[in-house]
């Protein structure tokens, strides 16, 4: 599999988060649920990495049937705005999908709902501008 070519992609909002050693308000972010998270690596946080993770993020409460994917699983994330794609491996649990149920991001007339993935700054900046906080994305497994 690869960018934009799986039969059952997920569509939703992506954002970015810092983890590992960092500065500023990110300073205490730590290595994430998998213990390997690092802002400089192409990694992501996924809301369904374990039962404990799912119980916190509860994407199902927003109508999202996101599959269980564990630490190290690889996703291909394509920015709807730029068309650029990056491969990332799961390193943390998140985002907290059910805190933002119904939230929507658009690129032109293409809008996707619910926050379903967070990328590290290195991964996000490869496909979008960090100064955009939220962006619609397609996620292939």
């Amino acid at each position: 599999m690869g960018c934009s070519n799986s039969s059952s992609p997920a569509y939703g909002e992506m954002s970015w988060f810092c983890c590992g050693s960092s500065w500023g308000p990110c300073g205490s972010a730590g290595g994430g649920a998998c213990g390997t998270c690092n802002s400089g690596s192409h990694q992501c946080a996924w809301p369904n990495t374990s039962d404990a993770c799912f119980n916190i993020t509860r994407p199902d409460q927003c109508g999202e049937g996101l599959a269980r994917r564990t630490c190290g699983h690889v996703f291909y994330v394509t920015s709807v705005c730029s068309g650029k794609c990056v491969s990332v491996s799961i390193a943390d649990c998140g985002p907290d999908t059910n805190s933002f149920c119904g939230e929507r991001s658009c690129c032109g007339s293409t809008c996707y709902t619910n926050r379903i993935i967070d990328l590290t700054p290195s991964a996000y900046s490869a496909i979008a501008d960090l100064s955009t906080g939220l962006s619609p994305a397609r996620i292939d497994s």
Binding site: G72, V74, K84, C85, V86, S87, V88, P121, S122, A126
Partner: peptide, 15 residues
């Protein structure tokens, strides 16, 4: 397409 092993440190990025 960004050619980099997923999970690897990105040499073209710094923080």
């Amino acid at each position: 397409k960004i050619k980099l092993d997923p999970g690897a440190l990105d040499p073209n990025f710094a923080e």
